[in-house]
Structures are given as C-alpha cells and as structure tokens.
C-alpha cells in the first residue's frame, strides 16, 4: 500500500507540511516493498489557484491509497475521494513520525474536508 505525506522537505526527518495543496513535497512510501519516493509539488505550491485540485491529481496519479496531511479542503477532498484516496490527518512532527503513527493505527481517516477553501 502506498501512502503519501505532505512535507516541507525531501528527507525522512523533514517536518510535515500541514497544508496539502501548497505543500512543498509529497513523500510516498510503499508499506509492502519499503520503496520510497519524493515528488516535487512546486507547480501546485505556486499555482495561482486550484492548488488542492492539482495536488489531488498528482497524488492520485502515483497510485497512492492513503494521504497523510494536516488539513484538507473541499476541492482537494473531492478529487481524492473520486480517486479512491483515503485522507488521514496528522497534527505535526516529521514525516517518519507520521508514518509510524499511521502504521500504529493512531491516525484517523476523515469523511469530509476539515477546512474551507484557501485555508493554506
């Protein structure tokens, strides 16, 4: 299973980015194979609008089944839901801490957006 984490940096000990659409990077971790990939989100971060839509499309295109982020707005959520990507929220910490919490079952899936548009 592939999980994506919104991140401010490229490393496992980089802090998470609480924003989804305007996060700097997505770190994608495959829990089955241990494979690991960093996806640059510069185009989404600097988009004049629709950053969440763009990021949702990007994450879905990588075959991700769960997204770990700080917050998720309505348009991003709509795209992720349509693509079958579950969204779980994590309050902060580093990327590897977030992965650890997720594997331990400490993070909760959300059933809808938790913030309004343009939150980030």
């Amino acid at each position: 299973m592939k999980i994506a984490i919104s991140s401010a940096g490229r490393k496992a000990d980089s802090p998470m980015d609480a924003r989804f659409g305007r996060a700097g990077y997505f770190q994608i971790f495959d829990t089955d194979t241990g494979e690991y990939e960093v996806v640059d989100n510069t185009t989404g971060r600097d988009a004049m609008q629709g950053a969440g839509v763009q990021a949702g499309e990007l994450v879905a295109s990588r075959g991700v089944s769960t997204l770990i982020t700080g917050h998720c707005g309505p348009k991003a959520f709509e795209v992720l839901r349509a693509a079958g990507v579950k969204v779980v929220l994590c309050g902060g910490g580093t990327v590897e801490m977030a992965i650890g919490k997720f594997i331990n079952g400490d993070l909760k899936e959300i059933a809808g957006p938790d913030v309004n548009s343009h939150w980030g």
């Binding site: 609008q49 629709g50 763009q54 949702g56 499309e57 709509e78």
Partner: peptide, 23 residues
C-alpha cells in the same frame, strides 16, 4: 483538457475527468 487548463479547473484521474467550474 487537463493539460491545457492553466487554472487547475480540470482534474484528470485514472478513470474519469472532473471539472471545477468555479476555477
């Protein structure tokens, strides 16, 4: 359609295309 849209109003997913008219 998703590639030409400069405004992220169209999301192309594996099996469908979504439009966000407000964008």
């Amino acid at each position: 359609c998703g590639r030409i849209c400069e405004f992220n109003a169209i999301a192309v997913l594996g099996d469908r295309v979504m439009v966000f008219p407000e964008l």
